[in-house]
Amino acid sequence: MPLLEISVVPVGTATESFSHDVEKAVSIIEQNNLKYQVTPTSTIIEGELDKLMDVAQVIHLNEIENEAKRVVTTIKIDDRTDKPISLESQVNKVSDH
């Protein structure tokens, strides 16, 4: 199943903190019943590509609805076709060494 990494930076808000934005993004991900992992600088989501893109759009638009003057969203997609991948398998490969 594909993995999508998303990082959203709202610009022109009343605060420098992103914690509320991350909490809202996680809430959106959970409402869509997707597996995820929060990192210090982004969030990784596992799911079908169409669903991942829909969720990424909702997360991005949520920042605009929350009155950010500008939103910079960075997305990376890891989609292997030769064998399945998952959040757990990718982390376990690194921690097993």
Rank of each mutant, 00 (worst) to 15 (best):
M1L: 14
P2N: 06
L3R: 06
L3G: 05
L3E: 05
L3V: 03
E5A: 14
S7M: 10
V8Y: 12
V9K: 03
P10S: 04
V11K: 13
V11N: 10
G12Q: 08
G12P: 05
T15H: 08
T15E: 12
E16I: 13
S17E: 15
S17L: 11
S17N: 13
S17W: 06
F18S: 07
F18W: 02
S19W: 01
S19M: 04
H20P: 00
H20V: 09
D21Y: 07
V22L: 15
V22Q: 13
E23M: 08
K24G: 01
A25S: 15
A25K: 01
A25T: 10
A25V: 08
V26R: 00
I29P: 07
I29S: 04
I29G: 03
E30T: 09
E30I: 04
Q31D: 07
Q31A: 07
N32R: 01
N32L: 03
N33S: 14
K35V: 04
Y36G: 02
Q37E: 13
T39M: 10
T39I: 02
T39N: 14
T41D: 07
T41N: 12
S42Q: 11
S42P: 01
T43I: 15
I45F: 15
I45L: 15
I45G: 14
E46H: 06
E46N: 05
G47L: 03
G47S: 03
E48H: 08
L49A: 05
L49D: 04
L49I: 09
L49S: 06
L52H: 07
L52G: 05
M53H: 01
M53N: 03
M53T: 10
D54N: 14
V55D: 13
V55T: 12
A56R: 02
A56L: 10
Q57A: 10
V58R: 14
V58F: 11
I59M: 13
L61I: 01
L61D: 14
L61A: 03
N62W: 09
N62T: 13
E63Q: 15
I64K: 03
N66V: 00
N66S: 12
N66W: 04
V72F: 15
V72N: 10
I75F: 03
I77T: 11
I77P: 10
I77Q: 05
I77R: 03
I77Y: 05
I77D: 09
D78L: 15
D78M: 11
D79M: 00
R80H: 02
T81Q: 12
D82F: 02
K83S: 06
P84S: 03
I85T: 08
S86C: 02
E88P: 00
E88R: 02
E88I: 03
S89I: 00
S89V: 00
Q90R: 14
N92I: 01
N92V: 01
N92A: 03
V94C: 06
S95I: 00
S95E: 09
D96Y: 03
D96A: 12
H97W: 10
H97K: 15
